[in-house]
Design a protein around this nucleic acid. Structure first.
Ligand SMILES: [Mn+2]
Ligand SMILES: [Mn+2]
Ligand SMILES: [Zn+2]
Ligand SMILES: [Zn+2]
Lengths: 150, 150
DNA sequence: AAACTTATTGCGAATAACTCTGATTAAAAT
DNA sequence: ATTTTAATCAGAGTTATTCGCAATAAGTTT
């Protein structure tokens, strides 16, 4: 959970600046209910309703920046757009089981997987940002019967 | 490794048809060198060069269909488009460590992860299509120094 | 505190990955 | 051989995301 100052610190370290927009975006994700994920458009509308609007291009730019920094994680469930959520450490870090047809997502945790992620990244000399097991599947409702005879 | 007949069988089971285009696409992936992945556009160009061209819309439709069937897997490394590869069973099944900046991808195997995937899907009553651990990271070359003084 | 540098914003236009439409073709069933 | 309807192709259309640029303001230097 980044405080405003912590956010400033990690931004400035790279030469980036702390802007009100960036704080607003981070706060929106921190306040988000567990299990919820936001698309760029979702966030845009949420902030509009909150009376703290931010332009869509700024939202896109910062969602990408904050994901690349490891503050947010980019999720690819829905067919045509990305979703985002906070990239949280160990006790809250989780993975997703998703139905490729209706996009329903179920979250679950797994420490062993996190360990694999850390060790593989280290082994290859990479700086780990996020590791996520994504299980693509068909939910009970979407796995239809083979084909009903005439 | 699907034979032409096996492909026909799984297609017909759902009321789909075996077309020369579908065979061509599957064959292209089966011939693909280990560690390689194709985007829709890549495949389009490959087939054009092979003198077995297929229209782009047909390619898109079938990449999606075959992914939803579990024959191919959809990978999300590059920023703006998907990549595909064969969805192979246990001895060849693998995961990816990718650099979010330059999109370099390293493959690795892990049976424990596959087990987690299978058990979680079963537990929730989902029909498993594919499970992939994606490790987002910065490769050695892309993790630049913090900021060089003037 | 004022001046300075340049990262960031917002707007609208542009891009490009992907989807849709509708006429034509051709699998599979009868 | 005939019938049914899924699939293909080409091109138009959609839309998530990016880009360009003038205006603004964060952080730094004086
Ligand atoms: Mn989640
Ligand atoms: Mn691969
Ligand atoms: Zn479903
Ligand atoms: Zn890299």
């Amino acid at each position: 959970m980044y405080s405003s100052n912590a956010l400033k610190a990690v931004l400035n370290e790279k030469g980036w600046r702390l802007t009100p927009q960036r704080e607003t975006i981070l706060t929106a994700f921190q306040r988000l209910q567990k299990g919820k994920h936001l698309s760029a458009e979702d966030l845009y509308e949420l902030l509009e309703q909150q009376e703290t609007p931010i332009s869509l291009s700024t939202i896109y730019r910062n969602l990408k920046l904050m994901s690349h920094m490891g503050i947010l994680r980019e999720l690819e469930f829905a067919e045509d757009h990305k979703h985002y959520e906070l990239n949280q450490p160990s006790p809250n870090h989780h993975h997703h089981l998703i139905c490729v047809k209706c996009n329903q997502a179920i979250e679950f945790k797994s420490d062993p997987i996190q360990k694999v992620g850390k060790s593989k990244a280290k082994q290859a000399g990479f700086h780990l940002l996020d590791c996520q097991l994504t299980i693509h599947a068909l939910c009970p409702r979407c796995k239809k019967p083979a084909k009903s005879a005439s």
